[in-house]
Amino acid sequence: MDVSDFLASHAAKSEVQVVDKEIPLTTDLAFLSVFDTNTIDEESHKCHLQSLANDGVQTLLVSLFKLPTTQTPDGPMVQLPQPTVLLPRAKPLPKPKPPTKWEQFAKAKGIQNKKRDKKVWDEERQEWVNRWGKDGLNKQKEQQWITEVPMNADIDHDPVKEARDARKARVAKNERQKLQNDAAAAGLSGKAAQEERKKDIDRTLSSSRISTASMGKFDKKLDGEKKIRGVKRKFEPAEGISEKDSSLSILKNMESDSRKTRTGPAPAEESVINTRKAVRFASKGRGGLAMARGGSAGRGGRGRGGKR
């Protein structure tokens, strides 16, 4: 039995058609994309686009099926390679932080910054202890069980409190310096910051001056104290403005406001039917609720309400 014909035809069927172009297509399988840098055929653009898409998909699939596969219960799996095309950054590079005051000083003096470890070796306890934080070395003076008191100490001298206050003061100083650095980094430095602070003080002062029981009327005046200037009111000129349009627009706004806040049905003047009157007529003056309860109840009600 000669199976060579059969095998040949099967091989021809399974043979992949490789796209042949002037500039070979490049693929980036990580993004499942194909790049075609050949010239565009402008005259028959419809056919060209179709062939372009065809070639692209062909190339993509061929290169995908060339990848090594692993067998999983769900079927063959392919691990996509690392991307070769570098996508540009969406956002600009972050600006470098302006140097802090210490960094400026260190640079001017040529001080090399050496990194300090958080842990320090404690000779007495023969272990690594925190420089700060839980059981930190900076709290050692507050936590030791015995403290030396100087000869000339006051009678209420509290060494623990003194040490603690000193530590807290150092923390506060650091915080203050950090705030200053932050303000300098935000651009509020020098003149601008001073102006801002001045305005803030003025605002506080003027509000505190009218915050007394008499709203500042009977307070003692200081020398050189200026009168508080309020907001200068500004009105439209008495003539030469078209008031009709502005009035009508105000009227329109009022209408739309009332329509927004209204919860019940629209008033009678807006609908064609006067609802209230219609309800009164249909229920013979008993009201909508009584009508909703049913006609028989209404007749019964009249019977009950009648003379006995």
Binding site: F235, S246, L248, I250, L251
Partner: peptide, 25 residues
Amino acid sequence: MRPLTEDESKAVFAKLANFIGKNLI
């Protein structure tokens, strides 16, 4: 003598509209 501000106009129109409704136009 001056024209009414917007808030004043609203106050006046609201009062008038209670009596004459849309005839305010």
